[in-house]
Amino acid sequence: MRVDKYLWCIRYFKTRSIATKACKDGKIRVNGDIIKPSRDVYPMDKITVRKNQINYELVVLDTPDSRIGAKLVDIYRKDTTPKEALQKLDLLKYSKDYYRKKGTGRPTKKDRRDIDDWYSDSETNDSEE
């Protein structure tokens, strides 16, 4: 089975085209080698997936016939991602919260649009009275 199809089947990517793009961008490694999307995977291959600033490591146990349910994923792969990598994801989440609290600092583009809408609504209500 192709590596992009395998990663889509075991639900690491939402669509197969996203999995193909990740392979082309060099974010997928099989046995330490950067590969093309058409590379076949076999049982006991070690795949490294770089996604959301985390290197997920998995071992291929078997290849499914088609996309499978989330509960059945562990039949086809063994997740060997180190705990430190998953803890790094939590730290990234906390650092984003620390960066800027909602409602503080300079308004974002969305905030400015909401303010402009509010002002334009209040002006139309004043002219109606």
Results as ranks from 00 to 15, higher is better:
98 Y>K: 15
114 D>W: 02
88 K>E: 13
61 L>V: 01
118 W>Y: 14
99 Y>Q: 12
85 A>W: 11
47 I>F: 02
45 D>P: 01
56 Y>Q: 05
6 Y>T: 03
33 D>Y: 15
129 E>T: 11
52 N>L: 10
32 G>H: 14
71 K>V: 11
118 W>G: 10
8 W>Q: 00
47 I>A: 05
107 P>H: 06
9 C>P: 00
66 S>M: 05
74 D>P: 03
15 T>A: 05
77 R>M: 06
12 Y>G: 06
116 D>Y: 07
25 D>R: 12
15 T>C: 08
90 D>V: 14
22 A>F: 05
109 K>T: 12
122 S>K: 15
77 R>S: 00
110 K>G: 02
75 I>N: 09
119 Y>K: 15
34 I>Q: 13
105 G>P: 00
39 R>V: 10
129 E>C: 05
49 V>M: 07
122 S>A: 14
118 W>F: 15
83 K>N: 08
22 A>H: 00
48 T>R: 09
91 L>Q: 15
19 A>T: 05
34 I>T: 14
106 R>N: 05
56 Y>I: 04
6 Y>G: 02
34 I>M: 14
17 S>D: 06
42 Y>T: 11
14 K>G: 08
65 D>T: 07
96 K>F: 11
114 D>F: 00
17 S>A: 12
57 E>Y: 03
43 P>N: 03
23 C>G: 08
120 S>T: 12
48 T>M: 09
40 D>T: 07
48 T>V: 15
27 K>M: 09
99 Y>N: 06
37 P>W: 01
103 G>I: 11
30 V>T: 09
72 L>I: 11
66 S>H: 12
114 D>T: 09
64 P>E: 03
75 I>Y: 11
29 R>V: 07
68 I>K: 07
98 Y>H: 11
119 Y>R: 15
16 R>K: 10
39 R>K: 15
37 P>D: 03
62 D>G: 07
19 A>H: 03
60 V>D: 05
51 K>C: 02
21 K>M: 05
19 A>G: 07
71 K>W: 06
97 D>R: 15
25 D>H: 12
58 L>S: 05
32 G>S: 13
35 I>W: 07
52 N>C: 00
109 K>I: 11
44 M>I: 04
21 K>E: 14
1 M>H: 10
121 D>E: 15
23 C>N: 01
6 Y>M: 06
117 D>Y: 13
89 L>F: 13
52 N>E: 14
114 D>S: 12
11 R>P: 04
77 R>L: 09
68 I>A: 06
77 R>Q: 10
6 Y>H: 03
48 T>P: 03
84 E>Q: 10
76 Y>G: 04
72 L>F: 13
94 Y>I: 12
61 L>I: 10
126 D>M: 01
107 P>G: 01
6 Y>I: 01
80 T>D: 04
98 Y>A: 14
80 T>S: 09
19 A>R: 02
115 I>K: 04
104 T>L: 11
34 I>Y: 14
104 T>S: 10
116 D>G: 05
43 P>Y: 05
87 Q>D: 14
70 A>Y: 10
